[in-house]
């Protein structure tokens, strides 16, 4: 049997070709796909996130780790579906209405995928109604809002308010982030969660949907 700690290493070092190759080998050896993800792939991305928070990794290292994760997941996801394995959660992400910035949003989306979440990325300039409609359509547990501009921050409150007013939203949670966003602002508008960085967003998403790190 292949030593899958090498898959962990390949993802952490951003070696997407090796990660994909090792994932294929593991599947060929009939290794349980869920255990591949839970024991090696998500822990590798979690470690990448820890290194990012510690300023050991920077954005490029994080992104190439996410690329390696995705390369392996392309092979493993169909097997997970065959086995009816659910993702850690479903998250609708997007940059709020009037705001066209997407660097932070894209980073968070990549890290959430790396953390085992299914991500529905609505892009930029997303209206409150679009967030709620997509969350309802996809059965999402969580909406993640991004804003770079102080002038577009108020759009976050509009989403939070709409979620609270929408009977279809059920137990849908809202988390927010972006350069001008603070915990104080999140509390002020009634958001359920907040993170000031992409790695922390994964932990916050896990807390909100009630799952623990692999």
């Amino acid at each position: 049997m292949t030593d899958l700690s090498t898959l962990y290493d390949a993802i952490l070092s951003g070696d997407h070709k090796t990660a994909r190759s090792l994932a294929q080998t593991a599947l060929d050896e009939n290794t349980d796909p869920k255990s591949i993800v839970d024991k090696y792939m998500i822990p590798a991305m979690d470690e990448a996130g820890r290194r990012f928070e510690a300023n050991v990794f920077y954005v490029p290292e994080l992104l190439i780790a996410a690329r390696a994760m995705k390369a392996a997941m392309e092979l493993i996801r169909p097997k997970l579906l065959e086995n009816h394995v659910e993702p850690a959660g479903r998250v609708v992400v997007g940059t709020v209405q009037g705001d066209l910035h997407d660097i932070g949003k894209n980073l968070v989306a990549s890290m959430l995928e790396g953390g085992g979440f299914e991500v529905i990325d609505l892009g930029v300039d997303v209206s409150p109604e679009q967030y709620v409609a997509a969350a309802t359509e996809h059965g999402a547990n969580l909406i993640a809002l991004s804003a770079l501009l102080t002038t577009t921050m108020p759009g976050m409150r509009a989403v939070v308010d709409l979620v609270k007013q929408s009977p279809a939203a059920g137990d849908l949670k809202v988390m927010i982030g972006g350069a001008p966003i603070t915990q104080t602002y999140a509390d002020e508008i009634g958001a359920d969660g907040f993170s000031d960085n992409a790695s922390g967003a994964v932990n916050e998403a896990r807390r909100l949907v009630g799952v623990t790190a692999a």
Binding site: P60, I64, H101, I103, N106, S110
Partner: peptide, 16 residues
């Protein structure tokens, strides 16, 4: 400088 969102991933990949 920091690439825009659409180009950030591509730039990170090119560095590697």
């Amino acid at each position: 400088g920091i690439p825009n969102g659409a180009q950030l991933e591509a730039f990170a990949y090119r560095l590697a």
